[in-house]
Design a protein around this nucleic acid. Structure first.
Lengths: 341, 341
DNA sequence: TTGAAAGCGTTACCAT
DNA sequence: ATGGTAACGCTTTCAA
């Protein structure tokens, strides 16, 4: 491997000139710069990462801590890790992957040894041990997801509350007055009471504020059929469905609806809110306000890069506004064409 | 951040003594070693990764290049990346994740800048540009998967041929004489002619060698029902099914079989061969000889670590023998208890 | 516009 | 059993 000294010799200049010519941090005459570039190309020169990191006190590496919880969807998990990696590359950073047992210890290690310049925290739980750790280290850290206690943390997440309000408003705008939320399974709710619960609260709050009837169901199993039975027993005549649940439940919804003889959007309008589309699988066939990794990850990385450069974030928690994706599953509550005259 | 010099001062020894005491590369008296350890702990000392890498000429990082092809299953993709990461940690290596556009360029970069000590290549295609690159760099590289031309490469993969033979032998051992392989979809076969084709060849070869009737079907769609129709039209009375196909096809098989009134294993015995179990989803309910990342990745990492340490691998292509997992879907072809007397 | 040289924090060789 | 110190390859300050 060629070193900067080899390049300097070949170009007939000093090593500092090579360094400046290649980094562009100082003005170098065109002639000299070209000679340096030619020599570098000729020798296949690439700065040694470790030497550069030591001298510049920056590794150009971002650590990504991504443990896997019991109900983590592997596909979503990968999507987040990939989007972070892609976003990081756009800022010339590489990403170090920390998983499982090492998600916490690796975070400590990367910070203490200056292995990484910054840390992205994925798959954030309500009570996350990494939150406490983040407060004790000096290494800039950004959470994708919001733990219960955000004191001293920098977090990025979808604005779930807004996505719920927007879903309700959209349905009401189409004349629906009997709505329902199909929420997370009771199992998920028991383990992860933070954001699923916040969604349910906001749904109840906003539906009440808008003065419509509403119901909330939490499936016991991964099958939407059971949830629909419960729902229509409690609140017959529901015509607007907001979906914010696990992917298995959502996937089985279309079949469950048609089993009950309900057409979408003829009889029921459906919007999925705050759900993550699965990689390499057909997206849910519903109008959606998704928690898209491609939305939150680049923003999180951008903030992290800013922190590394010494820029304070404008706010501790950044809520990314949801983007509406239409797939034709929302229709007027009682379209004239659908009714007998 | 405390440096080695701080520790040396606090412990009242020289920095080389600190280095040796902590690395264990030289015998240090118990007393001194304890003082050094106490000082290091007290100051929360951790060697700076970049300094260590520069001096030792080793980064303790393995790059993982993992592009995503059209038919890559995100779940399997993540599983491999995770298993490599876990295996790497067991050898004190961290992993750098290289995806998409950067899978190739990142590989170049890691090698040229000595960012990584070694490279693991995932999601290997028959004609993989990374194969050619691997031959031009000096950075030790191990492929998980086998490209067409393995000249000069080190590869690790499941012994697919063995898993097919073992499947056939198991079914024949239970008295089945009419077998079928449900292979990959025609779409996959068109794009990736290497290992799916090898599987089909081995199936035909071995079934012929064992003197049994056999058929091979390649589904046109992701639905197993269509494949079964084709199969039973061509070869009625098939009682032994070997599954080596895409996960969607395999997932739909149970339902498709019961749609045809076929019980497993009463009427048909089923073995899945060379398929990758999906993370966080119930495994396929069939006897299996899986391509388990937990099987191949640790071996690949072990070989890579050996290469880094200068050990030549015993062979260029390591085929990992499949492990049989029984789930009760194989039964005798005509068990007395199943027949009328 | 360029060069010289002082670090950066380790490791590992050569002494003692 | 321990210490001194060159070397690793780069960045960046200070000089010219």
């Amino acid at each position: 491997m060629a070193t900067i000294e080899d390049v300097a010799r070949e170009a007939g200049v000093s090593i500092s000139t090579v360094s400046y010519a290649l980094s562009g941090k100082r003005r170098i005459s065109d002639d000299t710069r070209r000679r340096v570039e030619a020599a570098a190309a000729h020798l296949h020169y690439a700065p040694r990462a470790s030497a550069r990191a030591l001298a510049a006190n920056r590794s150009e590496i971002i650590a990504v801590t991504a443990p896997r919880h019991a109900d983590t969807d592997a596909s979503a998990h990968m999507a987040f890790a990939m989007e972070v990696t892609i976003a990081a590359r756009a800022h010339d950073y590489d990403t170090l992957l920390l998983v499982q047992d090492d998600a916490l210890s690796g975070m400590k290690r990367s910070a203490n040894s200056a292995l990484a310049d910054g840390i992205i925290v994925l798959d954030v739980a309500a009570h996350d041990e990494r939150a406490q750790l983040a407060r004790t280290i000096t290494c800039p850290t950004v959470f994708i997801g919001v733990p219960d206690d955000t004191e001293g943390l920098v977090c990025v997440d979808l604005d779930f509350e807004a996505s719920i309000r927007l879903s309700i408003d959209t349905l009401i705008g189409q004349g629906h007055t009997r709505l329902a939320l199909i929420g997370h399974t009771q199992e998920t709710l028991a383990r992860e009471p933070n954001y699923p619960l916040r969604i349910q609260r906001e749904f109840a709050r906003h539906a009440r504020a808008r003065g419509v009837e509403f119901a909330i169901v939490n499936p016991e199993t991964d099958d939407a059929g059971e949830a629909l039975s419960t729902l229509f027993a409690h609140q017959p005549g529901t015509t607007g469905l907001v979906l914010s649940t696990s992917n298995p439940v959502a996937t089985s919804l279309s079949a469950a609806l048609s089993d009950r003889g309900l057409a979408v959007p003829g009889d029921v309008s459906v919007i999925a809110a705050g759900m993550t589309p699965l990689l390499s699988r057909t997206p849910l066939p519903f109008d959606a306000l998704p928690l898209d990794p491609a939305l939150t990850c680049p923003i999180a990385v951008e903030i992290l890069v800013g922190l590394i450069a010494g820029r304070r974030p404008s706010s501790a928690v950044t809520l990314v506004p949801p983007v509406y994706q239409s797939r034709g599953t929302v229709a007027p509550a009682s379209a004239p064409s659908n009714q007998a005259h």
